[in-house]
Design a protein around this nucleic acid. Structure first.
Lengths: 185, 185, 185, 185
DNA sequence: GTTTAAGCGAGACGGTACGTCTGGTCTTGGG
DNA sequence: CCCAAGACCAGACGTACCGTCTCGCTTAAAC
């Protein structure tokens, strides 16, 4: 039977999540071991295995709880500016070591549900900006917002994941400019 | 000092590469072990470690040598048709188990140089089609072919490694249609 | 830090010792591997390495625990008879495969302290008989019992480890007869 | 078929024997590997395996060829003095590292024929002294010279092989004194 | 207030694979 | 055809982690 969450030690839980993130940053995803997390957290291995099935979900929780706040600037109302801001923010997020490594663990474990969850807020915000742009007539009305978001994020994700080229703000801007040409009347 | 490549046993080399691919297909990248490859190839483990540092480069070589031939159809000369063909081919390649698994091992081992190498031929072909289109005036002369290729491939690669949605031919076509709008006069 | 002996699994410990002796008997000391002992005992290799540094001490413990009982006959009180009995017993012990093989492993690993420990009981018994003989006046009072024991055991041990000649009971008797001439008035 | 001894390279042979003894002295018998001998001798491994079946015979040859000369003093004619000289010489020989290690390899490989060959000269000399003593009436005529030699050497070999106690000249003398009591009228 | 019964730190356990080392054989090119 | 060199197959070595298990010990709810 599953463990009783009510009696769970919050002290241990937090120690584990913090230790996981610290080690992830220090060692990278492939050298991170559950054993080391337990040792650094001063916790029995079983306490980790009791609450998480593997590294992936553990790091996911760790990131959710101790990851960066991500307080975004308010939209300016100018579509092209806001879209660029949003895509640059996405690129910067991916460049952060913790975020990057967590995502890579999740991709490696094929936990796409969790990766998606992690990437979703950014995507929702981007779609919101696209809808605004649509309302203002800067994007054609027949454009599928979801497809458009994929078009914008695709090149960014690719550069991140495959590291084919540096993931700069200028690149993000260029993508926005190019894609916008496809979306305008 | 490094081993003497001139005296290398080609018989063993081929047996190892074949065994690696077979086991990769049967077990997937996470269950594939060097030990099993050696056993199936009828080879000492040392013979693998002598020539490859880890699973990643081993599978890379295996795929290069015994991967699919990739005999592509001749270009039709109609840019939109050829671009769609090319992007569909890229998507189909990624969907193939062997290719997928090899790439994932390489990403996990942080050997993105090799992933890039693996993906490069497709990209080169795509850029060639774009240049043809440019010559025919279907793509503006000022468009950066490399950036355009990234725009086309980005969404496809994203769906592949994040598995956020099925990687169909229709999707590839849609990407081409959308991006072409950005690239035409 | 060293492992916690209190939490040691006695089941595993016994299984390992038994397996070690069985394999020693079946294979001889040079073909005996830790790996095989672990497999036969149904135990992880680490459980052996955790508690023993090498084959030598492992086999030593195994022999101490599961070696022959050594229930010796009561002394008859006749010195020459008891000395012969004792030396014959020593010779027979050395002829036993398990004992022989354990000693050879220990000598090879330069653990002569343990060999000595293994041979000590026999020697103590022999010295006891010599003291009795001394009390009865069959051995001169000024004889060093320890040196005398060495004189008796030396030829036996020599034949054992050099295998220069068969180690028979008659030989042991002859040694006793000869040495006694040196020890009597 | 066996290799053709006539075409054997004497240069290699000597280099191997010297290297073997040097490494034996440096590493001890259990850490000595054929591989290291070949490397140090600048010789292919096969050249060793072609001419010697294992470490034992190799070291035996090495010792015979490059071991100490052992030019012994002339006998004094006084039996007890000569016997003591002889047994002390035996003890000193065994104390020498090279001799010791070669013997141990041979004992470990159960090549008692070769050990015997190595120890035989000493034993022959000792028996010669015993026969002289017998001729001079210091040893009874009915004493079996061979058995007597065994009685003398046994304790010495034992202390050497098992290292139960230091193998001093005094000890050798004491053995002679004690045993002589058994051999005189 | 005691008594349970869980979670907990600790770490031993049976396993699996690692990457290294050595043994003994086979192959290649040079002399 | 011997030799140096060293690649080869084979398989044991000792280590690192895996995920499970068992120990006492808190510790908080249920009695």
């Amino acid at each position: 039977m599953p463990p009783d969450a009510a009696r769970r030690s919050d002290r241990s839980r937090r120690a584990i999540l913090v230790a996981a993130l610290e080690l992830l940053e220090a060692l990278g995803h492939s050298r991170l071991t559950i054993e080391a997390v337990a040792a650094r957290a001063g916790v029995g291995k079983q306490t980790i295995y009791r609450w998480w099935p593997s590294k992936g979900p553990l790091l996911f929780d760790a990131f959710l709880e101790y990851g960066p706040a991500g307080a975004d600037a308010l939209p300016s109302g100018v579509p092209v500016v806001d879209l660029k801001r949003e895509l640059r923010a996405a690129a910067e997020e991916l460049a952060e070591r913790r975020f990057d490594q967590v995502c890579r663990v999740l991709v490696h474990e094929e936990r796409t549900d969790l990766v998606t969850l992690l990437l979703m807020p950014r995507r929702m915000a981007l779609e919101e900006r696209l809808r605004t742009a649509q309302r203002l007539g800067e994007v054609r009305a027949d454009v599928d917002v979801s497809a458009a978001a994929e078009l914008l994020l695709g090149p960014v994700y690719q550069r991140w994941f495959l590291r084919t080229a540096p993931l700069t703000g200028e690149f993000a801007d260029a993508v926005v400019d190019l894609v916008l040409r496809a979306l305008t009347g």
